[in-house]
Design a protein around this nucleic acid. Structure first.
Lengths: 342, 342
DNA sequence: ATGAAAGCGCTAACAG
DNA sequence: CTGTTAGCGCTTTCAT
């Protein structure tokens, strides 16, 4: 076992007969250390296999140089893209990252938040769990002036910075597209309406109906948890309806895909009997049959923007830029699941 | 801004007129501190909002109490399950977790490994990237006696502990199932054969053919990167073949799903014209049409086993249990994509 | 059962 | 341009 033989700046200092301070400064590329000594020092450091001790450094600096990330899930193309975007920006600035995921559970989101707080992250980027109803578990961050950026799944509260898309507009466009394809009875299937994303998509759905003079029928609004089982349940429910919808706007691709399956198994034709539009442009949307029309937005970009915003706040020390909202673009991708007019 | 007002054990000590040492011991539940003082101290700690400083603690202890995890991807149900399994075990023991993902790129795996090494994780759990050909980037861990557990995507080298399934047997079973369904010309589509997983699945494929006296036809072995584009390419290739295969064993569900799509678009019927078995029991296998037969194995269990094994090594300080391999069970799930006899 | 004191490795005044 | 010194918050002998 090669224990104990960890090299420190003192070892380097001794070898070169300089002080530890000089070594420290050289390694941190401090101006006012001759290029010569810098070179000697970093060469020796390399040679002796020196690795800096982040604990000592962080203890001294009272900073972790680490950003915490809380996501509601991991198992999605969108989230993976966001993470890549964040990583790209943050590693450029040499920040480290700790990822916590809540698996859509409020409890776990809370414990992740607490954990990251104890880990003393310098900043936080978060997307809320499905059933998160308040932001009190982030209050320790706000109190200490640790910047928090929420993305995608955000809440209305004027706390932290938000990076989102215009879900209302997206909902409007998805619905309008179905109307233009000739749909008259459009059902909207969505998640927990206490979540702003779902609220906004519903709002867009409603205003599209309104603008086109279509009635708002209560039985054509379904709220569930967008899970696999919920999708199957909705599909079966539709199959039993006497007066079936002819269009479906579903707030999530996975749910849309499973629901479509169920409908097809029940003998309905998509899009002829029932046209479908999903949301998120997940990988699955290109695999189901027919391919799913959906709302696309760039996860990588969202991640990049969230990270850059956070870095700005960290650098400029803007204490409480609460309530700022950054809106990114999205677009409707039309595929066969909603194509009635060709 | 509420800066600077971080509570330390000295603050607690002063308030209670005891020494910092006592506070430290009390907080760590040291025997030989009276229950009474322990209670007083932890009550005050709670009240004053004390949070221990991990940096100081780790610096002093020369341990991070953190486990590093490197995964080849995040965007998969299997990996998410593994992570849950790991988290479950590790948080029970109060270990923290840092996740790095390589996005299937060797370069990123290397930099993740280096990063985690610098972060001084106490142990490492890793699944190799698609194009990882050697384990040299883990040598710093082995040298320092930091335990490493590989799971699923492992290499042959006798380094670290491994947690896997019997891929050869699984490959054998998948192929045998196709043969039993009446397939005579079975194609195997798989990934980089320098990866043990793919090698073993191929071996199983071959021995099944052998046992049933079926010939091994070189043109019926396709090696690609199992990506979406590769899947489409293979599908098209098959459509052009004069002497088409009547069965497909594909080493990954996503690739199988996309390939199946392409085949169906080209007019082939699944499973009548061509039966398909995938691998991994991804969510997608239950959404494609027909539902995909596949090899299932429990990611959560794999994660739990990997984490427990690591903890054992950490506790018992077994320095180099290299070469140990733990094999978990798997099973074939038969769905419609391969069901010819009913 | 508790305290005093030293030190983990690093950085930042301050001094030269 | 470089060295001295003190201290970040915690744990741990060694005392008592």
């Amino acid at each position: 076992m090669t224990e104990k033989n960890e090299i420190t700046i003192y070892d380097l200092a001794k070898h070169l007969s300089v002080s530890a301070a000089t070594v420290s400064r050289a390694l941190n590329n401090h101006p006012g250390i001759s290029v010569k000594t810098k070179k000697r020092i970093s060469a020796l450091a390399e040679e002796m296999g020196y690795r800096q001790n982040d604990f000592a450094k962080n203890l001294r600096n009272r900073k972790s140089h680490t950003i915490g990330i809380i996501v509601h899930e991991l198992d999605s193309h969108f989230i993976t893209s966001v993470l890549s975007g964040i990583e790209q920006i943050l590693t450029e600035s040499n920040y480290d990252i700790i990822i916590g995921h809540s698996a859509e559970a409020y409890e776990r989101e809370v414990s992740n938040a607490r954990n990251l707080f104890h880990k003393r992250v310098d900043g936080l980027i978060a997307s809320l769990a499905y059933d998160t109803q308040d932001l009190s578990h982030y209050s320790s961050f706000f109190q200490k002036g640790i910047p928090v950026v929420f993305f995608d799944r955000v809440r209305k509260e004027e706390l932290g910075t938000k990076v989102v898309i215009d879900n209302e507009k997206a909902g409007y466009e998805a619905t309008m597209h179905l109307i233009q394809q000739g749909c008259k009875r459009i059902m909207h299937i969505t998640g927990n309406l206490t979540q702003k994303v779902y609220q906004d998509r519903l709002r867009g759905f409603e205003s599209a109906l309104l603008h086109k003079g279509l009635p708002m029928i209560p039985s054509l609004l379904i709220v569930n948890d967008l899970s696999e089982s919920a999708a199957i349940a909705v599909g079966k429910k539709i199959l039993k309806m006497k007066n079936k919808p002819d269009g479906l706007f579903i707030a999530n691709d996975f749910c849309a895909a499973v629901c479509m399956q169920t409908l097809k198994e029940g003998g309905l034709k998509v899009p002829q009997d029932i046209a479908i539009v999903g949301f998120n442009n997940d990988k699955i949307s290109r695999v189901v049959e027919p391919n799913l029309s959906t709302i696309q937005y760039d996860g990588a970009e969202m991640g990049q923007v969230a990270a850059s915003t956070l870095l700005d706040q960290l650098k400029n020390g803007s204490p409480n830029p609460n309530g700022h909202t950054i809106v990114l673009r999205h677009r409707l991708i039309v595929r066969y699941s909603s194509l009635l007019k060709r």
